[in-house]
Every structure is written in structure tokens, then in C-alpha cells.
């Protein structure tokens, strides 16, 4: 038997909670993140590339305490990358965006290690459980090989030998001088 009274009571208690979740989702969804740079970026290790994006509040109300940050994933080993050397600014605090406004975002990313990576931009709003995520940008970083054994080897071996030779020559001269 369906207990109508119990269902009514549960509905009364849970409806504000459901409404707040729906409102929160709506507010989060009214925030859109779009990447303006190309979907695929490539370069050589050591290069810098700027990822341009924008955040738009398409909702009817202003949204407060927005923080945006980037996340980089190494596609070959499916592991997130520590951004220590990749980007000087990992997160950007935006603050408030008024209704209908758009703000530009940009991150200078340093290609550190060769490989294939994917980057997304995430926006968090204070008090919201679900963040807003941009589409994925794919990176292909080619290795920059600074290997130069052809030039360094003669110097690395030759210089200590040359200094040692000069040292021996000076000591020989001193001994010769003493003998005289």
C-alpha cells in the first residue's frame, strides 16, 4: 500500500534540497568556458605557447568567487602532470562575473618534456559542487636535443690536459731556473 502521507512528507522535506542542487547546477552551467586557441598545439621542448580562453556568464545573475585553473595530462602514461615547470600561473582568480559578461583568460605554457598531452581549463565557483570544464586542447611536444658531444668532448678532455701541460711547463722552467 502506498502511504500517501509519507510520500508527501518526504517531498516537503527534500524539495528545498533538490531545488538548491538544481539551482547550483544551473548557476554552474550558466558559466561557459571556451578555448580560443587551436584544438591541437605543437612545438619543441623548451618553447612557450599561450593558451587563450574565455569565461562567459550566460545566466541572469552575477556569479561570485570564480577560480579557473589548468590541468595537464600526459596521454602516454595517463597521469596528470605536475605544473611546477610547465606554467608560471596555474590558477587565475577571477572573482565576480556579471550577467552576460565575458572575461579573457590566458596561460603561458612552457613545453618541458617531449610527449603527447591534453589540457583542460576548469572553473570553480564558491559553494558549487560541480565545476565547469572546457573542451580539451591536445599538445604534441617534440624533443629538443641539445646533445653536442662533437664539440664538448675535445674541450672537456682537452682543457684539463692543456692546463696540466702548462703547469708542468712552468714547474720545469722553475727547476731549470733553480739549477742555473
Amino acid at each position: 500500500m502506498i502511504n500517501v502521507k509519507r510520500i508527501f512528507m518526504i517531498g516537503m522535506v527534500s524539495s528545498p534540497l533538490i531545488l538548491s542542487i538544481v539551482y547550483a547546477q544551473t548557476e554552474s552551467q550558466s558559466l561557459t568556458l571556451s578555448i580560443l586557441s587551436e584544438k591541437t598545439l605543437s612545438g619543441t621542448a623548451g618553447n612557450f605557447v599561450t593558451v587563450n580562453a574565455q569565461v562567459t556568464n550566460s545566466g541572469p545573475n552575477s556569479i561570485n568567487d570564480i577560480t579557473t585553473y589548468i590541468s595537464l595530462v600526459d596521454e602516454s602514461n595517463k597521469m596528470p602532470v605536475d605544473l611546477e615547470d610547465w606554467s608560471a600561473e596555474k590558477g587565475l582568480f577571477i572573482g565576480t562575473i556579471d550577467s552576460g559578461k565575458t572575461l579573457p583568460l590566458s596561460w603561458k605554457v612552457h613545453f618541458v618534456k617531449a610527449g603527447k598531452y591534453s589540457l583542460i581549463i576548469i572553473a570553480e565557483t564558491a559553494g558549487q559542487e560541480i565545476p565547469q570544464v572546457s573542451s580539451i586542447v591536445h599538445f604534441t611536444v617534440k624533443p629538443k636535443i641539445n646533445l653536442n658531444p662533437g664539440q664538448v668532448l675535445p674541450i672537456a678532455l682537452g682543457m684539463p690536459i692543456a692546463v696540466l701541460f702548462i703547469m708542468l711547463l712552468l714547474n720545469y722552467r722553475r727547476d731549470l731556473h733553480k739549477a742555473e
Binding site: 641539445n146 646533445l147 672537456a156
Partner: peptide, 12 residues
């Protein structure tokens, strides 16, 4: 200088 210019990791 030899390590910087011949080691694969450092040469990156």
C-alpha cells in the same frame, strides 16, 4: 659541461 651536453635528460 660534458654532462649538460651529453646526458639525454639534461640535454632537454
Amino acid at each position: 659541461s660534458y654532462l649538460l651536453l651529453t646526458d639525454k635528460e639534461l640535454s632537454l
